[in-house]
Amino acid sequence: MDAVIKLSLALMGLALCLAFVRLIKGPSLPDRVVALELFSTLIVGIIGVISIHTDVASFLDVTIVMALMAFLAAIGFARFLERGGPRDD
């Protein structure tokens, strides 16, 4: 069981690094927002795996709150783009 948890944490850590690279290099604002959404999803996954490994149920509450905040941020960005995005007045 420990090998599976270590492997999943290592793969999510690698995906986190790749998402961070896309967040920095992203050519456009929507690319960066998608990378940030992926970043938050991976953080939720990592906390979930740690919660399973340590048998601490309160970590799952943290993951639920973080997932809801990431969802609301994605909705807010979508509404921002729907209204025209950044303007150069």
Rank of each mutant, 00 (worst) to 15 (best):
D61T: 08
A67M: 14
G84W: 01
V21P: 02
M69A: 15
K6D: 14
L38A: 13
I24K: 00
M69R: 02
V4R: 06
S40I: 06
R79K: 14
L81M: 15
P27T: 05
G76N: 12
I46D: 05
S40Y: 00
I24A: 07
F20E: 03
P27D: 10
S28T: 15
F20T: 14
A67F: 05
L81T: 13
L60W: 01
V33C: 08
C17L: 15
P27E: 10
M69D: 03
K25G: 04
R83I: 11
P27S: 08
A10V: 09
T41N: 08
R83C: 08
I24E: 02
L14D: 03
F59V: 09
P27F: 00
I75N: 06
G45H: 04
G48T: 15
A35E: 08
C17D: 05
V49Q: 04
L81H: 01
A57H: 09
F71S: 09
V49L: 13
M12V: 08
A74D: 05
G13Q: 03
G45T: 06
A78Y: 06
L16K: 01
L11A: 14
A3P: 03
K25S: 15
T54Y: 01
L29T: 14
V49F: 01
L11C: 09
A10P: 03
G13T: 07
G76Y: 09
E82L: 09
D2C: 02
R32Y: 00
V56Y: 00
G48D: 09
V34D: 04
C17Q: 05
D2F: 05
I52F: 14
L81Q: 11
V44K: 01
